[in-house]
Design a binder for these strands. Structure first.
Lengths: 105, 105
DNA sequence: GACGTGAGTTCAGATGTCGAACCGACTCGG
DNA sequence: CCGAGTCGGTTCGACATCTGAACTCACGTC
């Protein structure tokens, strides 16, 4: 569990993974949909790549352009992310609406 | 999803919730099992209480002593945490062993 | 050349984390 | 009574990380 959280115990990483699971692959799209600051997203994607959850693939040489794809390990995290989303819809959204905590990382 | 992560998108919060799910209720025990720094744990527990995932209950007046219990919303997060644990055992532990990223929070 | 896009990088300030020390409210035994 | 110990935190300074805004690079298009 602690190992899992070492890799994905981070808001932006999980949100990025969710977008990748939807089939989004471009940096700007992931960034736009998640709202992550660009530096944070770049760092998280690098971590996820280093961790083997995500692979980076060149889709254009001129100009050089990369896209991001889930590995097997990344794909197998999707049911967890789906479950978290469902829980969130049921509980977290109402709780945040009412009187959630300050947005904290 | 983003709302869910506002509440639980934090390593120590998730680890604390896992212990609460096991039935651990005392501050010192949660802290010991999770390895969270005391100040971080205190802050996370306060957030979780404010968010309605955890409730605090006085179990001793002299000296004043509180324990922490999961609410319904907190309990319904346990399957998600369980799924994350299973994923972690299958993928994260080997990945971290091989060449995971720097431990980042 | 000017302009626009995508994919980042940089940076100063803000915020968070952490280890170690500390503190309060006790209880217990000498 | 006093000292030692437990529990449940709090405090603080040093350090780490995050963030918004600006910037840069490598192009392609007009």
């Amino acid at each position: 569990m602690a190992d899992a959280l070492t890799l994905v115990g981070d808001r932006w990483a999980l949100l990025a993974l969710r977008e990748l699971g939807f089939g989004v692959t471009r940096f700007t799209d992931i960034q736009g949909f998640t709202g992550a600051p660009r530096a944070s997203l770049a760092a998280r994607l690098r971590d996820l790549e280093a961790s083997g959850l995500v692979e980076r693939r060149r889709y254009s040489e001129h100009p050089p352009r990369d896209e991001y794809l889930l590995t097997r390990a990344g794909q197998d995290l999707m049911p967890v992310i789906g479950a978290l989303r469902e829980w969130g819809e049921r509980y977290a959204t109402p709780l945040v609406r009412d009187h959630g905590p300050d947005p904290s990382g």
